[in-house]
Amino acid sequence: MKVFTPDAVAKAATNKYLGVLVAAKYARELNALPLERSPYGAEKLTTVAADALTSEEKKLQYRLVRARPTLIP
């Protein structure tokens, strides 16, 4: 069982909250893959996503996109 500390997540992202959001969105993307073709086996997808974010190889890269302002008619 791997444990990801807030400090490790904060070092990989700007802060720990952003790191958790990025890992959660990546886990959702992994969940959309067909289960029979998943290379991760029985490992939890949240663990895979957190590991990809905090790994030394920088397996997971992200960028922030500003939200467009909503126009109210």
Rank of each mutant, 00 (worst) to 15 (best):
M1I: 00
K2W: 08
K2N: 11
F4A: 03
F4Y: 07
F4M: 06
T5H: 04
D7I: 00
A8V: 06
A8N: 02
A10R: 06
A10F: 05
A12E: 10
T14Q: 14
T14C: 12
T14H: 13
T14D: 14
N15P: 06
N15S: 11
K16R: 12
Y17R: 14
L18W: 12
G19V: 09
G19D: 01
V20S: 04
V20N: 01
V20Y: 07
V20Q: 03
L21E: 03
V22N: 03
V22M: 04
A23T: 00
A23V: 11
K25S: 14
K25E: 15
Y26C: 04
Y26V: 02
A27I: 03
R28W: 02
R28D: 15
E29I: 15
E29L: 15
L30M: 01
L30R: 00
N31C: 05
A32S: 06
L33G: 08
E36S: 10
P39T: 01
Y40F: 15
K44D: 14
T46A: 04
T47R: 09
T47D: 13
T47C: 09
V48K: 06
A49T: 01
A49H: 06
A50M: 14
A50N: 08
A52I: 04
A52F: 06
A52K: 05
T54E: 09
S55E: 12
E56H: 04
K59H: 11
K59V: 11
L60H: 02
Y62H: 13
R63I: 10
L64Q: 06
R66L: 12
T70Q: 15
T70D: 15
T70W: 13
P73Q: 07
P73F: 02
P73V: 13
